[in-house]
Design a protein around this nucleic acid. Structure first.
Length: 572
RNA sequence: CGGGGCGUAGCGCAGUUUGGUAGCGCAUCGGUCUUGGGAACCGAGGGUCGGAGGUUCAAGUCCUCUCGCCCCGACCA
């Protein structure tokens, strides 16, 4: 490709609305442009990168036996009503009507559609297992899209769905996908972790996330410092045995805590450690049940754990009105005594004595409260976020915490959708059985963004060669020098003939502009051809990743470039 | 959905407090000169000041409404 005839609008300055480095660099490197919040154009360079990621995904999906299809982006409401998700999915599901006033939505995921295909076409155990996947534009009307392609509303996703006759079969399909995903992210040149995850709104029995480690990640990953255990913070269990406090029970004391809503305020004021202050959170669980969950002041509530413990579809904080109604007190002063909702407590509370709780009254807390004596707890369980230093459930090591970008997520669904949508096959005995499903997603744009988060410097992107829009950039530095131009042209043609993806910066620009654009866009290999070095018959080859500058005789350039390219592909 | 902020040339911003001819840098176009790290100089074009309504002799600036975008939180494959 000749850059003079290409479309690469680079930006010198960072766009005002970009926050994270991948967003800034994708904008500046002319890969994407915003059309609306969370909705982007893919410009040529961006599209090439997207297609490269897609093709890597295709290769390993096909290798794992999955078969590509393409389902509609616009999905009739009937399918979603059938699975029951039409009423559950919430505002993220973009709904609209066609001219006949029929309900439709933009598919945010395709369990319903793919299950519909399979139930219509697959009748026998002989047709199974099967794994169908697609690479398609999805839409989720996120409350707050942000960070460019990292969290768009419209985004390209690879989603695969496996169908098996048995649970064991489904688990094999799951393992196969897990292995394929490992190959995919490795082939993308990314550093990643496979972590245990909560299965969330998709539902199902177990699930893993593929996390690219990056400072700007939105997910917290708990991993062990001495074994390979890793889990999303939503999932990572806290198994520490908390101390049984050995102090005599004191009598409850009512204290005024004017305008102190936070645990820190209350603890400081009363002169007790934060962990002696117990937070009582009022929540609304599925079916509109109001419940209370008590956790230690220095701990964080984990909604996913509560949701799973109660086995309900969602858990939310109660509104101030609901709190007033169920506790007779204002937000910020809730406590367990005298309220008539079910009270659950984190394991850490088991051995605690004489702690501080809210008084269900403005500016009032209670001292020396004890469960059992002053109120009763329905159940103890693990309701808090793990912290660094907690004990690993697998080996007894210590937890550490890192941030990650979720680029892939795999779920074992079981029969959730096959039951609600009646996807049935006949087994060997002619008996009807539900098909056992799994689903497997990869965020394509997010994978590209994650690669930038992980590979960049102050000058721009440093593409892993597998994802780079072009493998080699040739920069003739003196437009008016015939030798320079001729050599650049010759080398450009020769590289093309060798099948190298090469771009020739033949724009009438000064050297500095070409250097800066090349570094911004992040071509793995750059060839400088200038009259200064050409006087000695030499050109410069620069490896973006290492910054290494190799001078070589102009006649050796071709073989040297091929050699470096080969080396870059075989690294990692 | 709660809190905060922003909308002025393609991009980045000033001007709004205190109403009085719409500006700066970069980019673009023409020219001179330069040519290995986003050159310099001369000249030019480009604006419904997000939109609607109002106050006023006069509104980018004040008032009301509205739309869009960003950040924090909540939520979320």
């Amino acid at each position: 490709m000749r850059l003079s005839k290409y479309f690469l609008p680079t930006l010198r300055e960072n766009p005002a609305d970009a926050e994270v480095v991948s967003h800034k660099l994708m904008m500046r490197a002319g890969m994407i442009r915003k059309v609306a919040a969370g909705i982007y154009d893919y410009l040529p360079m961006g599209l090439i990168v997207i297609r490269k990621v897609e093709n890597i995904i295709r290769k390993y999906m096909n290798e794992a036996g999955a078969i590509e299809v393409l389902m509609p982006a616009v999905v009739p409401a009937e399918l979603w009503k059938e699975s029951g998700r039409w009423n559950v999915y919430g505002k993220e599901l973009l709904r609209f009507k066609d001219r006949h006033d029929r309900d439709f939505c933009m598919g945010p995921t395709h369990e319903e559609v793919v299950t519909d295909i399979v139930r219509n076409e697959v009748k026998s155990y002989k047709d199974l297992p099967i794994n169908l996947y697609q690479i398609q534009t999805k839409f989720r009307d996120e409350v707050r899209p942000r960070f460019g392609l990292m969290r768009g509303r419209e985004f390209i996703m690879k989603d695969a769905y496996s169908f098996d006759t048995t649970d064991e079969g489904a688990e094999k399909s799951y393992r196969d996908m897990r292995d394929a995903y490992c190959k995919i992210f490795k082939a993308c040149g990314l550093k990643y972790k496979v972590v245990e995850a909560d299965s969330g709104a998709i539902g199902g029995n177990f699930s893993h996330e593929f996390m690219v480690t990056a400072e700007t990640g939105e997910d917290f990953v708990i991993s062990c410092d001495s074994c390979d255990y890793a889990a999303n913070i939503e999932k990572a269990p806290v198994i520490d045995v908390w101390q049984e406090e050995d102090e005599p029970l004191k009598s409850v004391e009512r204290v005024e805590t004017k305008n102190m809503k936070t645990v820190t305020d209350v603890a400081n004021y009363l002169g007790v450690p934060e962990k002696k202050v117990v937070k009582t959170m009022i929540l609304r669980a599925g079916n509109d049940d109001i419940i209370a969950v008590m956790i230690r002041g220095d701990h964080e509530l984990n909604m996913a754990k509560i949701k799973n413990f109660l086995n309900v579809p969602y858990v939310e904080f109660a509104t101030p009105e609901e709190i007033l109604k169920s506790t007779n007190g204002p937000l910020g002063y809730s406590g367990p005594i005298g309220i008539n909702v079910k009270i659950f407590a984190d394991n850490a509370l088991k051995g605690m004595k004489n702690y501080v709780v809210g008084g269900n009254e403005k500016d009032i807390h209670l001292l020396n409260v004890n469960h059992g004596r002053d109120f009763s707890i329905v159940a103890f369980s693990d309701f808090i976020n793990a912290k660094p230093g907690n004990t690993c459930p697998k080996c007894g090591g210590k937890y550490v915490i890192t941030k990650g970008i979720e680029v892939g997520h795999i779920f074992k669904l079981g029969t959730k959708y096959s039951k609600s949508m009646k996807a049935i096959y006949l087994d060997k005995d002619g008996k009807q059985q539900y098909i056992v499903m799994g689903c497997y997603g990869i965020g394509v744009g997010r994978t590209a963004a994650a690669a930038i988060e992980q590979n960049h410097d102050e000058k721009g992107i440093i593409w892993p060669i597998q994802m780079a829009p072009f493998e080699v950039a040739i920069l003739p530095l003196n437009d008016d020098n015939e030798d320079v131009v001729n050599l650049a042209e010759t080398l450009y043609i020769k590289l093309q003939k060798k099948g190298v993806e090469v771009i020739l910066d033949d724009r009438k620009e000064r050297a500095g502009v070409k250097f800066n654009d090349a570094e911004l866009v992040g071509y793995p290999i750059r060839v400088n051809i200038g009259k200064k070095t050409l006087e000695n018959g030499e050109v410069e080859i620069i490896i973006r990743k290492t910054g290494e500058k190799i001078s070589c005789k102009k006649d050796d350039a071709l073989s040297k470039i091929l050699e470096i390219r080969e080396k870059l592909y075989n690294e990692d």
